[in-house]
Design a protein around this nucleic acid. Sequence first.
DNA 1: ACCTGAACACCGTTCAAGT
DNA 2: ACCTGAACACCGTTCAAGT
Lengths: 222, 222
Amino acid sequence: MPSRARVTLTRESVLDAAAELVRRHGPAALTMRRLAAELGTAVTSIYWHVGGREALLDALVERTMTGLGEIRPSGRTPEHRVVSIASSLRRQLRGHPHLVALVHERGLTERMFLPAQQALVREAHAAGLRGARAAEFVRAVQFQVVGHVLVERNRERAPAQNPGEAELWRAGTAGDDPALARALARPVDTERLFETTVRALVRCLLTARGTGPAGHGTVRGR
Amino acid sequence: MPSRARVTLTRESVLDAAAELVRRHGPAALTMRRLAAELGTAVTSIYWHVGGREALLDALVERTMTGLGEIRPSGRTPEHRVVSIASSLRRQLRGHPHLVALVHERGLTERMFLPAQQALVREAHAAGLRGARAAEFVRAVQFQVVGHVLVERNRERAPAQNPGEAELWRAGTAGDDPALARALARPVDTERLFETTVRALVRCLLTARGTGPAGHGTVRGR
DNA sequence: ACCTGAACACCGTTCAAGT
DNA sequence: ACCTGAACACCGTTCAAGT
């Protein structure tokens, strides 16, 4: 009260500072001591407001995730609308690159997809899928989108692979298909790849007619 | 020389001990000090043989990866063979659960797929795909398999989601489809999901006829 | 060529003590 | 109710010194 050189410390202000630290320098830069320095307080004050580092990260992930915004499907057919849901989620996650790492580290990748699930269920229903079939469709899209984002983010921060695709496909390993070798030596256009694969997956799963999902494994599913 | 209470320290023996530590207690347990204790040497000796922690992890990932074993496609059609390649890679990676985390942390997920690329290229050719189309196919499968493994491994070590799918789909949020709600509240059968999605993706990409991969721009794909 | 301990600059967390 | 510094038990890495 007397000095007021700083904003009064609250749970919110701690989370703000933490989020800013992560945004600017990545998750590794978020140490309790550095955060305290940024806030101009003693390290131990943070423990009073948000608990330890684990709790802090939990709260941070939670807050960022709820702020991600609505999923608004667009397009006329279910196929287009599902692709738009997937693209929209991907775009949102790419807008918070460090969040993806944070969420992954904390074993919460599944949570990243929860807000999109309802939207997907609606599209599955619109496409005539119900029950377990619809559930499988939702899960398939979920795994593919989240998985793609994880791989994409990962490769973005790994500039020099060793040995990378470029070297692997320089020699005559391509079975007399130089165009293929050239294509594989080039960096991936991940956005295009994302749309292509999601579209292919959706098309196949939504139009799969007949006796349910393709049989699998040793006996015969369902 | 005089005491010889321990095996002579070599680069190999250091890597052995490190791999064992990771296998038994996870990557977080691999600290230089603990490793030294395990080996019965001074911490600094490790630096002479393998360099710092980064170099150690690099070497560890490298060694484990080369020991993963061959990819042996089985099945009569390209579709079956591609699915078998994907399943085989997934199985190998699941046999080294900590490796996946290690590789991901180090931004090397792409490397996990390199040994499988050649096999996939052969199948793409056998299916009549060439050049950029074949490359896109390989990449699509790559992203999907690696992405799936990442998501799968991630959800395995996140026992209690909060709020999880179970809670989300308990209420009447399923649009009068109780079977769907029940299915989404249940844990995922990831193996089945993996096979279904890979099969769907492969089928769609291998049989896509016409003018090349689906258009992707802002306007309207194909 | 190989190994050592001491030292440095960091961590997260606890706890008794202040106001 | 809120904040503090001291202390504890850890980290990875460097470096001069040993043999």
